[in-house]
């Protein structure tokens, strides 16, 4: 099974979010960057597991971003167990730009499975997988939390829907977005970290893409008013306040 895993660079989950240039740019000073959690924990690890289970195939990770992403996110993915990496040398302008870059590479390589995480924790777009699937004319299984696949590429996938799950079958090639339940996070060991340094990272120039969307500016949410504390001896007051003051019940 020839597999491609799309990985994004995102701020660490504990990052304080601030902006510069009159709220038009994300302030990266003091921010630690990581591999987007669902890309790493679920998409990448499940791809590695499939290779281990079938005892054949390859796992390539792909990232659209500047050179520094090689040390920030690509090395981590290689240390966890990807075989090689591709970096498209461009700033990730928007979802369509990123999906178009990945699709241009995937078209040449003819992958069997393409994984993404369910969404990134920075722009929360959740669009890359669906766009890739349409660009490559493949089925798209979004929000998947379980997948079994055989050597022939016939898969049974559980995906989340409102208030439950849907169990579907599909044959390769397809695009899948992975979320919690697909796999368990793996911590790279020393051997993985050492071998990552010798794994190939291919750098590709971007293809030209029309700009579909752009961010005009950012806003921070308004501060919440001070919490109103309710006497624990009279918790019933809460229900009265929720009805009469907050008007939510």
């Amino acid at each position: 099974m020839k597999m491609l895993v799309c990985i994004s660079k995102t701020p660490d989950t504990t990052s304080k979010i601030a902006f510069t240039d009159n709220f038009t740019r994300f302030d990266t000073s003091g921010v630690t960057f990581i591999v987007n959690p669902t890309d790493e924990w679920y998409a990448l690890v499940r791809a590695i597991e499939v290779k281990e289970q079938l005892q054949t195939g390859s796992v390539t990770v792909i990232n659209v971003g500047p050179k520094e992403n090689e040390s920030v996110v690509i090395q981590k993915a290689l240390a966890i167990g990807a075989d090689n990496a591709v970096r498209i040398d461009a700033d990730a302008a928007d979802a369509f730009f990123v999906a178009s870059q990945i699709a241009a590479h995937a078209q040449q390589e003819q992958y069997d499975l393409i994984f993404t995480g369910k969404e990134t924790i920075d722009y929360n777009g959740s669009g890359i997988g669906g766009m890739l699937a349409e660009l490559l004319d493949m089925p798209y299984l979004s929000l998947a939390n379980h997948m079994v696949i055989d050597a022939a590429g016939s898969a049974t996938i559980t995906r989340e829907i409102e208030g439950g799950v849907e169990v579907v079958t599909v044959n390769k090639p397809f695009v899948i977005s992975a979320q919690k339940g697909m796999a368990e996070q793996r911590i790279p060991n020393m051997r993985g970290i050492m071998s990552a340094r010798t794994k190939p990272v291919k750098v590709i120039a971007p293809v030209s893409v029309d700009t579909y969307t752009s961010i005009v500016n950012y806003q921070l949410p308004p501060a919440r008013t001070e919490v109103k504390l309710i006497d624990p001896e009279n918790p019933e007051t809460l229900i009265k306040l929720l009805h009469e003051e907050a008007k939510v019940i």
């Binding site: 701020p11 989950t13 990052s15 979010i17 902006f19 924790i121 920075d122 722009y123 929360n124 029309d210 700009t211 579909y212 969307t213 752009s214 961010i215 005009v216 500016n217 950012y218 806003q219 921070l220 949410p221």
Partner: peptide, 19 residues
């Protein structure tokens, strides 16, 4: 332009759609 929540609820962004 459309407003959406970004950074998992820690901020909002106004997106322009050009198409």
């Amino acid at each position: 332009t459309v407003k959406k929540s970004v950074f998992s609820g820690k901020a909002f962004a106004n997106y322009a759609i050009h198409t």
